[in-house]
Computed example of a mutant assay.
Amino acid sequence: MSDIDWDSLTFSLTKTDWMYMVKCNLGDAWTPGKIMPYGTFEIDPAAGVLNYGQGIFEGMKAHRTINDRVVIFRAEENARRFQSGADRLGMPPVPESIFLDAVEQVVAANKKWVPPAGKGAMYIRPLLLGTGPIMGVAPAPEYTFIVFVTPVGPYFKGGLSCIDLIITDEYHRAAPGGSGGVKAIGNYAPGMMPSKNAKKEGFAEVIYLDAENHKYIEEVGAANFFCVKNNVIYTPELTGTILPGITRDSVIQLARSYEYEVIEEKVSAEFAMDADEAFCCGTAAVISPIGSIQHGDKKKVYSNGDIGPITQKLYDSISGIHSEKVEDSFGWLHEVDLNLNLEK
Rank of each mutant, 00 (worst) to 15 (best):
F226M: 11
F226D: 08
F226Q: 13
V228S: 00
N230D: 12
V232A: 01
T235M: 06
T235A: 09
T235E: 07
P236N: 05
E237Q: 13
T239L: 13
P244W: 01
P244K: 09
T247S: 09
R248N: 05
S250F: 12
Q253C: 00
Q253D: 09
Q253H: 09
A255V: 05
R256A: 00
S257T: 12
S257L: 08
E261N: 08
E261H: 05
E261S: 10
V262A: 09
I263F: 03
I263V: 15
E264H: 04
E265S: 14
E270T: 04
F271G: 04
F271C: 02
A272F: 07
M273H: 02
D274P: 01
A275N: 07
E277C: 00
E277L: 04
A278W: 04
F279V: 06
G282Y: 01
A285C: 15
A285M: 15
A285L: 14
A285R: 13
V286F: 11
I290G: 06
G291N: 10
G291D: 08
G291Y: 07
G291C: 10
I293F: 14
I293T: 10
H295Q: 15
H295Y: 15
D297K: 10
K298M: 14
K299G: 10
V301W: 00
Y302N: 00
S303P: 04
N304D: 11
G305M: 12
G305R: 07
I307P: 06
G308R: 05
G308T: 12
I310Y: 02
I310D: 03
Q312S: 15
K313V: 06
K313Y: 06
Y315D: 08
Y315I: 11
Y315G: 11
